[in-house]
């Protein structure tokens, strides 16, 4: 459905996209995952024919991105990063306006959108500007679906939206997928990665990895432990003092650490866990838990971005913690 080959895009000095290539087969949810400023929006704008790439080419539904852009525009639905609704028009007016610019009406497409539209019905006379974040997001999705597109481009649809609404939104996407839509979605929430069929991790305009979430976590090379104790903030600094610990970050109610074993590690992981535990006890920690865990996509992402640019990350934090 989407085929992208070697796309480059540069804005004055900043290389926004560098050698981007990927394919998305029909009916797949493909996630582009990375922080703000990684190049997600540039990529979406290129693929929705809004801007031109400097080099490289792509096809959408077998149509050439540059030469056949008019035809492409009929087949795609696009939800830009900022909610692109008319704030002073009501829910209903927004929908019927978008319907009419695609030469259709709400009634003609009632079935396509009814699932989401029913949730909006109680608010249909309310101005879009007065809706909550979750409702705006649903309305924007409705607007993008109104002309029965084959492919959906959703640029950060869940940014700034609370976990419950985010969950609802992904459920909707999965139902749309079941109806045969191909969906390209970007997000900066790492935990949403597992909801995609395949993902691309993007940072500084480059794809770090393209694969299924499972394969990406399988390819993780490091030894990962979860650690907790009674004093979590002190624990973070103490872990960094351990000679074999290469990184230590908070992950919810535990800290994740990666451990670089000294050469020819014959010992079992569990023994290393014990060793770390003893080290922490010497530091005065109580109620210590250390366990081997399998990585999440977020662990993989952090590993991928931290490796090449260890120097670029300010060293201040470790020094700060050491002062404590």
């Amino acid at each position: 459905m989407i085929k992208v080959h070697n796309i480059y895009k540069k804005y004055s000095k900043i290389q926004a996209l560098e050698d981007i290539s990927f394919d998305v087969p029909r009916g797949e949810i493909f996630g582009i995952i990375g922080p703000d400023g990684a190049g997600k929006t540039s990529l979406f704008r290129i693929l929705t024919t809004l801007i031109l790439a400097d080099s490289g080419n792509a096809t959408i539904d077998e149509l050439d991105l540059v030469k056949q852009y008019r035809l492409i525009r009929n087949r795609i639905g696009y939800m830009p990063g900022r909610f692109s609704l008319y704030q002073d028009l009501s829910v209903e007016e927004n929908l019927s306006f978008y319907a009419s610019i695609f030469g259709t009406t709400i009634e003609e497409n009632a079935r396509q959108i009814e699932d989401i539209y029913n949730q909006l019905l109680p608010f249909r006379k309310r101005r879009a500007g007065a809706l909550s974040g979750g409702m705006k997001q649903k309305l924007a999705l409705c607007c993008a679906l109104i002309h029965k597109p084959k492919i959906l481009f959703l640029d950060e649809p869940t940014t700034g939206v609370d976990p419950v609404s985010r969950n609802d939104f992904w459920n909707m996407l999965q139902r749309l997928q079941a109806e045969g839509l191909t969906i390209l979605v970007s997000t900066s929430y790492m935990e949403e990665a597992s909801l995609c069929d395949r993902i691309a991790l993007i940072q500084n305009g480059r794809f770090l990895k393209v694969n299924t979430p499972e394969n990406i976590t399988k390819q993780y090379q490091r030894h990962l432990f979860a650690v907790s104790s009674d004093n979590m903030s002190l624990l973070l600094g103490d872990l960094r003092k351990h000679p074999f610990v290469t990184s230590s970050y908070a992950f919810g109610d535990v800290h994740h650490i990666t451990v670089e074993f000294p050469d020819s590690s014959a010992k079992e992981f569990s023994q290393w866990a014990l060793q770390i535990r003893e080290f922490l006890m010497q530091c005065g920690h109580t109620n210590i838990f250390v366990s081997v865990i399998s990585p999440s996509v977020e662990d993989c992402f952090m590993d991928l971005i931290c490796l090449p640019q260890e120097q670029a990350v300010p060293a201040s934090l470790s020094s700060v913690v050491n002062d404590d």
């Binding site: 990375g34 922080p35 703000d36 990684a38 950060e156 940014t159 700034g160 900066s188 790492m190 940072q203 903030s233 973070l236 970050y249 908070a250 977020e298 992402f301 952090m302 971005i305 931290c306 990350v313 300010p314 934090l317 700060v320 913690v321 404590d324």
Partner: peptide, 24 residues
């Protein structure tokens, strides 16, 4: 107010360490 929206995971954690520092 949502200080870490859209920030990469590593920076997000560094940010929280700054928060701890301030709280200390």
């Amino acid at each position: 107010d949502e200080p870490t929206g859209g920030v990469d995971p590593a920076s997000r954690r560094q940010f929280w360490e700054l928060i701890y520092q301030a709280a200390d």
